[in-house]
């Protein structure tokens, strides 16, 4: 049976040969053995370096803005298309951009990958007790090879945090699917950590978040990685009015994260990329998760992470139960 990587290469070749796409966005090996970085191919030869495996990968959907904004705006020919490797979470991000009128669906070739969750090498290293030299992944287990000993770890233990709260294991619709649906298990919604925070007193909660936000270095990685953050000019970049003091201070960090959380409230697709890219490990998923949880509860939405044309917080209704 062909591996997904082989199948991808075959498909990419076909797409380029038939002149269907101008660009293919995928992954290639990064600078360390297990890191994967975004790769862009304008022809088949460039695409040969691309691979698909189960190591942690960055989110690709956001690159579509750069590549397709001009097409959507009508500056460049409408027929130009970009193919993109798409897992379920990427798909939600792409939907977000389409719903927000940033890009057009007709310009995208969704190359779908089913996904069981990606492997967090840091977690594997921790369990092994040293930096793994070789990691092999099979159906259920991850085998990490150390200097002297090997360790067999169950996949569930080393899966990325963001994958634990996955709400879509493969793209809901795609142009090309690289593999049959995997036997993935539907994950139960887990708001237990959020409920723990809800139980705290106001003071405890303030202290908890102060500890988290103190660490923030305001690198804006969370914003830059987020597909819901697709503004032409972010409010934090605008100098007049100055919504955020440029000083790095905890109170300003609070402002930054709260405003961002409210800006993505009802629009966050629960991909967890913000938390993954944070260099200081701020648990942003908790903040966005709280808002999703509340929206699901207050507006009777089944899954707040799935982008819809009309957002629960973005609609005017005359029969709104809340008088205005």
């Amino acid at each position: 049976m062909m591996t997904m990587t082989e199948k991808m290469r075959e498909q990419v070749k076909e797409l380029f040969v038939n002149n269907e796409i101008k660009l293919f966005i995928g992954f290639e090996k990064g600078f360390t053995k297990f890191s994967r970085i975004p790769a862009f191919a304008e022809n088949y030869d460039e695409a040969k370096k691309m691979i698909i495996d189960e190591f942690e990968t960055p989110f690709l959907a956001k690159y579509l803005i750069r590549e397709l904004e001009e097409v959507a705006a009508g500056i460049v020919e409408k027929s130009e298309r970009v193919a993109i490797l798409t897992r379920g979470c990427d798909y939600l991000g792409i939907r977000r951009l389409i719903v927000d009128n940033i890009i057009l669906r007709e310009n995208i070739v969704i190359v779908g990958i089913p996904c069981d969750g990606l492997i967090d090498v840091k977690k594997a290293n921790k369990l092994l007790g040293e930096e793994a030299r070789e990691i092999t992944i099979d159906e259920e287990n991850v085998i990490a090879k150390g200097k002297t000993e090997n360790k067999i770890i169950s996949k569930a233990e080393v899966v990325l945090d963001r994958c634990r709260q996955c709400i879509m294991c493969e793209p809901k619709e795609s142009d090309i699917m690289l593999a049959e649906k995997t036997a993935n298990v539907k994950k139960n919604k887990d708001y237990s950590k959020i409920e723990e925070i809800e139980k705290m007193s106001a003071k405890e909660r303030y202290e908890f978040w102060s500890r988290q936000f103190e660490r923030c270095i305001r690198c804006f990685a969370c914003r830059d990685a987020c597909t819901a953050c697709n503004c032409r000019k972010c409010i934090f970049d605008i100098t007049e009015p100055e919504m955020l003091e440029k000083t790095v201070a905890t109170s300003e960090q609070f402002m930054f994260h709260f405003i961002r959380a409210f800006h993505v409230a009802g629009r966050c697709s629960a991909c967890g990329e913000c938390e993954r890219v944070c260099p200081v490990d701020i648990p942003l998923g908790l903040l966005n998760g709280k808002l999703r949880k509340d929206i699901e509860f207050l507006f009777n939405v089944e899954e707040a992470g799935i982008p819809s044309e009309i957002e629960p917080l973005g609609e005017f209704k005359l029969d709104d139960p809340d008088e205005w």
């Binding site: 927000d100 009128n101 940033i102 697709n230 503004c231 032409r232 000019k233 605008i238 009309i310 957002e311 973005g314 609609e315 005017f316 005359l318």
Partner: peptide, 15 residues
Amino acid sequence: EKICVGCLQCEPICP
């Protein structure tokens, strides 16, 4: 118009 991204989230919200 310089800033507007054209997402039109404002459209359904306008009474």
